[in-house]
Amino acid sequence: MGNWKTICLAVLCAAISTAYAADLQAPAQVTAGTAFTIPTSGSGDRTFYLVGPSSVVKKSVKLGSEIEIAADQVHAAGRYVAVSCGSEGCSSASFYVVSGSPAKVSFLLHPSRVPVTAHDAINATAFVFDKFHNPVLRPVEVDFRVVPKAGPAFTKSVKAVQGVAWMKMSPTPKEGPVKIIATIGSNEEPRIIRQVASDACNLHIKARRTAKGVEVETDPVKDCRSNSVPDGTVVSFTAVDSNGKSTVDAPVKKGVARTELPITGKAIISVASGVVTGNEIRL
């Protein structure tokens, strides 16, 4: 007997709920940032609530007229619930706000510096958003424009999947800054990646006697692809003479590293940069 009572109560509640739900006739889907109206039926004053992912709106409405929803009340994409409450209870309807047209791109580019020899080492990832920062989940094309320091620029178009477009690429052959611009519509996000030379190759020094000692200088320090190593790269000069050992960690400036060692007699001078060693000079 108790079960029958429960079932009847549930059916009654469902019927009332359905009847109230019919008060609000919300659209199934709305584009973010677009004003729209929710038609209502019935009569009397009610309090209207619009509960969204990041906002709640409350206002008094009259049933039977249309409830106007302003554009700025539906900026955030997601599920919204419209509720109207009166003395006899509440009714509700839900609808979805979807992202608008692509308007912004957030761009992650890794790494910041990459040796020119590193294969597929550049990773570019773009996230597509509408103008209200809602991720645009439908497929849209993102252009990655690559502008090397030397050589022609080129563009690679990638279709975003679930709001994300990404690509891998190898560095261009020459060292230097490379600008990569992610573009969607008129929105551009530039990033700089610095392509750098690999380890020094064929490190070579020459020496000449001066009034103060011996001036030692490298040839232009380059990697095996003839890219100049970045200025500031430390080159270690070592001289061994009768007074002992002398060392100088000199940075490459304008492509060469040089120093002056206070050597007057016989000496052996060698050079290294990181793990790379160069030639040896006997004076």
Partner: peptide
């Protein structure tokens, strides 16, 4: 800064 450069001479 890359400067100053300091030489270490006559090490013994």
């Amino acid at each position: 800064s890359a400067d100053p450069v300091i030489a270490v001479t006559d090490q013994k």
